[in-house]
Design a protein around this nucleic acid. Structure first.
Length: 388
DNA sequence: CCTATCTTTTGAGAACACAG
DNA sequence: CTGTGTTCTCAAAAGATAGG
């Protein structure tokens, strides 16, 4: 059973990350107009810990939200918050686990405690004093469970930080039910076949927050490899985290300014595929009409009207035209290991003057040295538009 | 159908380079 | 030096293939 993945013992510890409020505010402010009269679902989250829930409950009236639904799975870590309504498995431990999955449904929220102001205490008041706002779920709160799918069907837009380890499945479900979404994922996910396909078809794009800003996330108390502490809580920097959405994002309608002129010297062809190599997105030549290999960071600036995405520059996505037997080098030194397709990557001739890294392969017959390229996106410039 | 062996894919990351 | 943004490692795990 797939749901077994969500059982305590089997769940990936790394799925217990919480997003910081500044990161949420920074991204979501661009979609404000979209939230009006919408049903918003924040799943895979503990509402008592989640800043997503806090953001939408606090801004419920300001944004004009129709309904806010949040779900929390059993086994969710409860870092420091006092839970008024649900007991945890072990009250002695610093990292409590929630025993019972539940959901919260808010359709109206006002100055609940009549103190003249609207803030988080009103949200808490509402939760404490209305037993129909919080209700227990029958199952463990897994986003794939029947009752959670019912909640998904009701939603207009899903906003959360899903478990990275289940990212593929999570996105597949959102697509299956044709939902709008704004979620956090790993930039490595861009190279997943299924995710890349969605980007290529312009059904998915990166969000407003710039790529690779290195978001910090709260981790459980007993987490060892943390990078800094803020307000007594451990944080981990994930340098490859970014927002994914299928909503309109302005930067993907802006044209990338191109200023470089193509020269064969500066933009060498790959040995195993008919495309030129470009190391920086800003250096894509404006006058080259063939296929171009660019770094993955391109996808954060990609405008479908300016470029066409051909494929991922890795084995399985394109066919390599050259299969030399080469020795694999490690830090430029022989290893005695061989490969015929450069471990499935694009490669070009080693340039002893410009390259700062040692070569990765050596042709066993000719002795020619080659550098392998980090995952590239193969693109092609579209026909020039008037005035472009 | 199972096991041994070879091949491909993966990363809630790691390691840089660079600006200030 | 630190903070920030970009490029890239490598070994484990999963998948594919071959042989009995």
């Amino acid at each position: 059973m797939a749901t077994e993945l969500f059982d305590n013992a089997k769940r990936n510890k790394a799925d217990e990350f919480y997003t910081r409020m500044p990161d949420i505010e920074k991204e979501l402010r661009y979609y404000k107009d979209y939230f009006r009269d919408k049903v918003i679902l924040c799943n895979c989250d503990d509402p008592y810990e989640s800043n997503f829930f806090k953001y939408f409950s606090m801004n419920f009236n300001y944004l004009g939200i129709k309904k806010l639904i949040a779900t929390c799975y059993a086994g969710s870590p409860v870092a420091g918050t006092q839970l008024p309504l649900f007991e945890t498995e072990n009250s002695e431990s610093k990292t409590n686990k929630l025993k019972q999955a539940y959901k919260i449904e808010i359709t109206k929220i006002e100055d609940e405690n009549s103190d003249g102001a609207f803030n988080l205490t009103d949200v808490e008041y509402l939760l404490r004093n209305n037993n129909n706002i919080i209700t227990t779920l029958n199952g463990n709160g897994d986003f794939r469970s029947e009752e959670c799918v019912e909640l998904l069907k009701e939603a207009d837009i899903v906003i959360t930080n899903p478990p990275f380890s289940l990212f593929r499945e999570y996105v597949a479900q959102l697509i299956e039910f044709d939902k709008k979404f704004i979620i956090i994922g790993n930039t490595n996910a861009l190279t997943y076949k299924e995710i890349f396909k969605l980007i290529k078809e312009d059904k998915l794009r990166t969000g407003y927050t710039n790529f690779n800003v290195g978001m910090y996330f709260y981790v459980p108390e007993d987490w060892d490899n943390y990078h800094k502490v803020e307000d007594g809580r451990k944080l981990v920097r994930v340098s490859t985290s970014c927002w994914f959405t299928n909503l309109y994002v302005k930067k993907h309608r802006d044209f990338i300014t191109l200023y470089k002129k193509y020269t064969p010297e500066e933009f060498p062809h790959y040995e195993n595929y008919d495309a030129i190599n470009v190391d920086k997105v800003s250096e894509i030549p404006f006058d080259y009409d063939g296929e171009i290999g660019v770094p993955i960071t391109f996808l954060d600036k990609y405008n479908p009207d300016q470029f066409e995405i051909i494929a991922l520059g890795i084995v399985g996505s394109i066919s390599f035209s050259c299969e030399k037997k080469m020795e694999i080098l490690r830090k430029g030194k022989p290893t005695g290991e061989y490969t015929v397709n450069a471990k499935g990557t694009l490669y070009r001739k080693y340039n002893p003057i410009k390259d700062t890294k040692p070569p990765a392969f050596r042709d066993i017959e000719t002795g020619e040295l080659y550098s392998s390229m980090y995952a590239r996106i193969i693109i092609k410039r579209r026909e020039r538009h008037n005035g472009n």
